[in-house]
């Protein structure tokens, strides 16, 4: 198995009167886009800043692309791009000079800088605004410029904290496309955002942080339609079945089918939890048709990222409430 690009081991971060991260461990694979989600004050920004080697953890280790952040902070800085939620740009400089400076401070050879500037500007749709002063740009364009500066040196790992805040729907859409194109170019992305619907469009993994703990880190499935689906359980899949008219035999017929673990709903519309291969699902339809149950709809029920996130958060907090002292 390939070495993960990010390896976090027992990371603890403390503020003077608060422990912000509690012995956090996780790993992020190359080429993934991980959605970092959690409530306000959960520790997302602190986590990202530790990964970016901007803040020193109290204890624990972070390895980025084989480099320990505490031992080789500057080497790590060269390999990553980090955009803070509260970023700034040099308002007095033109867009071109902002990008030129960003390329130069990442020690891109002078001869290659114009190419990098052009490529970055093109990726973010800024090629027509190169001569405009950064201070005159709208919020959305400033955001794009900030992202362009962050990716100008082609980092292997891109850490983005709330990159879509303040962007209009069209800009968000193009941001999603940019994320996927960066991933396709070989970057690994970790994106923190509160806009879960948008994360759903491009994320391959989800990392939930609450109160300084990682409460979930899962892969998101990609269905044939291309949409992401949150994997609540790798074994059981929820399936929704609708009938043309109520049939009292529905629950009885379904319960008899191998692989069906639970049935919920009335006599016309039910959700069943099916454990088995995708190829075995047609067995359910066959059984229903052979039993003359008037089935008109059969589909996998997808939990949205938001639903899954809220569900995980609820479960985690219930656990804390039930066992306040039983934690490691």
């Amino acid at each position: 198995m390939a070495e993960p690009i990010v390896l976090v081991e027992d990371l603890v971060y403390e503020y003077p009167t608060k422990r912000a991260l509690h012995s956090v461990s996780c790993q992020i694979e190359h080429g993934s886009i991980t959605a970092l989600v959690g409530p306000n004050g959960a520790g997302k920004t602190t986590f990202l800043r530790c990964l970016a080697a901007l803040d020193n953890p109290f204890s624990g280790q972070i390895t980025i692309n084989g480099l320990k952040t505490q031992n080789h902070p500057r080497d790590v800085h060269r390999q990553i791009g980090y955009l803070s939620d509260l970023f700034g740009i040099y308002d007095e400089l033109t867009v071109q000079r902002c990008l030129y400076h960003a390329a130069a401070i990442h020690q891109i050879p002078a001869a290659q800088i114009p190419d990098h500037v052009a490529k970055s500007a093109e990726r973010l749709g800024l090629e027509t605004r190169l001569q405009e002063t950064a201070g005159t740009l709208s919020r959305g364009l400033r955001q794009r410029l900030a992202i362009a500066q962050t990716i100008i040196h082609d980092p292997v790992l891109l850490l983005l904290d709330e990159p879509a805040s303040g962007l209009d729907p069209e800009a968000r859409q193009s941001l999603s496309e940019l994320m996927l194109s960066l991933r396709d170019d070989g970057m690994t992305l970790l994106v923190s955002s509160h806009i879960l619907a948008e994360l759903e469009d491009y994320s391959s993994h989800m990392l939930i942080i609450d109160n300084g703990h990682i409460i979930e880190h899962s892969m998101l499935h990609t269905s044939t339609s291309g949409a992401q689906d949150y994997d609540t359980s790798p074994e059981a899949v929820p399936l929704r079945i609708c009938l043309a008219c109520p049939d009292e035999r529905l629950h009885q017929v379904l319960s008899a089918i191998p692989g069906i673990e639970a049935v919920e709903g009335d006599f016309q519309e039910v959700t069943v939890l099916f454990q088995g291969e995708v190829g075995q699902r047609h067995e359910i339809i066959r059984h229903l048709v052979e039993s003359c149950v008037p089935v008109i709809a059969f589909q996998e029920q997808k939990a949205s990222l938001q639903e899954a996130y809220l569900q995980k958060l609820k479960v985690s907090r219930r656990t804390v409430a039930a066992h306040p002292g039983g934690q490691g």
Binding site: R19, H22, I28, H205, L207, D210, E216, T319
Partner: peptide, 16 residues
């Protein structure tokens, strides 16, 4: 104050 809030789960680790 710093250690008043306690960790949630043992190890608190996750891998994808």
């Amino acid at each position: 104050k710093a250690h008043s809030d306690v960790p949630i789960e043992e190890g608190n680790s996750a891998t994808a």
